[in-house]
Design a protein around this nucleic acid. Sequence first.
RNA 1: GACCCCGUCGUCUAGUCUGGCCAAGGACGCGACCCUUUCAAGGUCGAGAUCGCGGGUUCGAAUCCCGCCGGGGUCACCA
Length: 467
Amino acid sequence: MTVRVRFAPSPTGSLHIGNARTALFNWLFARRHDGRFILRIEDTDRERSKPEFEAEILQDLRWLGLRWDEGPDAGGEAGPYRQSERLSAYRAAVDRLLDEGKAYHCFCTPEALEAQRRELLARGFPPRYDRRCRALPSEEVSHRRRAGAAAAVRFVMPPDRIQVLDLVKGDVQFLGSDLDDFVILRADGTPSYNFAAAMDDCRMGVTLVIRGDDHLANTPRQMAVARALGWEPPRFAHVPLIHGADGGPLSKRHGAVTVAEHRAAGILPEGLANYLALLGWSPPPGTNEVMDLPTLSRHFALDRVSRSPARFDAERLAWFNRQHLRRASVERLIEQLGVVATPLTRRAVEVLRRDASGLAAIRESVSALMEEPASPVGGPDYAVLVAARRALAEEPATEAEAGSLLDELGRQLGLPKRAIMHALRGALTGREHGLPVASILYILGGEETRRRLERAIGALPAARGAS
RNA sequence: GACCCCGUCGUCUAGUCUGGCCAAGGACGCGACCCUUUCAAGGUCGAGAUCGCGGGUUCGAAUCCCGCCGGGGUCACCA
């Protein structure tokens, strides 16, 4: 049987880092087993679901490098892949359960339910639905329905033991009698999550559900629904959640929590993916931790997924990002940076990518290099600049060559290297710190270097009298 | 409150099933030194974990058993 896994986001916001990792694990698993990666949009919440969020999520997944084999835009045998387009199927299934006595209409109002819930909780009881509508005579039910009374449909939860053989958590047991008769079809005719997800996983032929830990307690409900419908539920693998630095659930106050924010902060997709993959999963012993997506998918296995939650560590992410920055080609970085490819920017990226902390830092340095220094900084030395203008007449083809030119200049002037470098950096970039001067010469090129030296010399107060 | 999950260096983790190879290994971060033309990067070395706590089993426990504590999740006509 071919492996079929799915990622099922609800379009109620942009792609969160935790969901991104869930998507990644699913994708890695699918690639590893030559299976299919399915994207399903869970948009049954009419209030909160927005098409623009769906578009955003799709874009973020693509940016991360995760492509799906079946999905709302890609099509596939098991479509449609948007739950809002599968409503008739859910209703038909609910009708079947109703006919078979495995579900019943509930006329309780949300307000009454809420009051009931609060009271039970206050008295220290589990807040479970008391099943009062289950006992309603069928004549009364049809009468009230004909009269147009709003009714949700509840699932008759069998009291039996339900065993989840989880690929990460192991054998987890639940008692149906601890669970209540949850709503499967809302009064507005839309299905609830536990019903729609359970049904779609079966109907779409999903063989394994890899998702966040927070769904473990929902699993017995979904398995019961699947079985009531006459299907064998898929297998499950619940991966632990990602927490913030303080150990609590990840939220906005922890900083960047969405994929879009990290992209904006200059994180490379392969850097994020690599870091996220290692949050909760550990590669086989002896494997280099720095890996691209194909390598990751070659090694990925659920038996090496951790059972405990992991804290998000921005420093570690930054390190992985740097590793990938060094490995990336100049072309790719130029593209990711969105800068114009000129000989100067290409040389700048080539040099900068070696030790920049991230794309944002590269972008900043590139634009700083491209801009003409307003005025020289750090006590420019007239003699040094004039000598430099002469000595640097040649076009350095490499950084090493630029270095030799500088050494030569140093010998001619008989000045300490430090002083020469400082003067040149100040004159050429208008800054006191930054790249090695040899690198600056290489990046700027002979012509631009001379131009800037001219300007610096011209701006020197001493220039008039001395020249 | 009920049910369920989790607990190894500051952080991510290996090791737990199949007790001894673990006086606990790797990575990030941190410290020192080296390199050096500034800031970094890089290299080398180093500090850092009584394996949540308490019992028990055993010649021997991070690993098995019991109890406790702490953190988290679910219990919505959200997903």
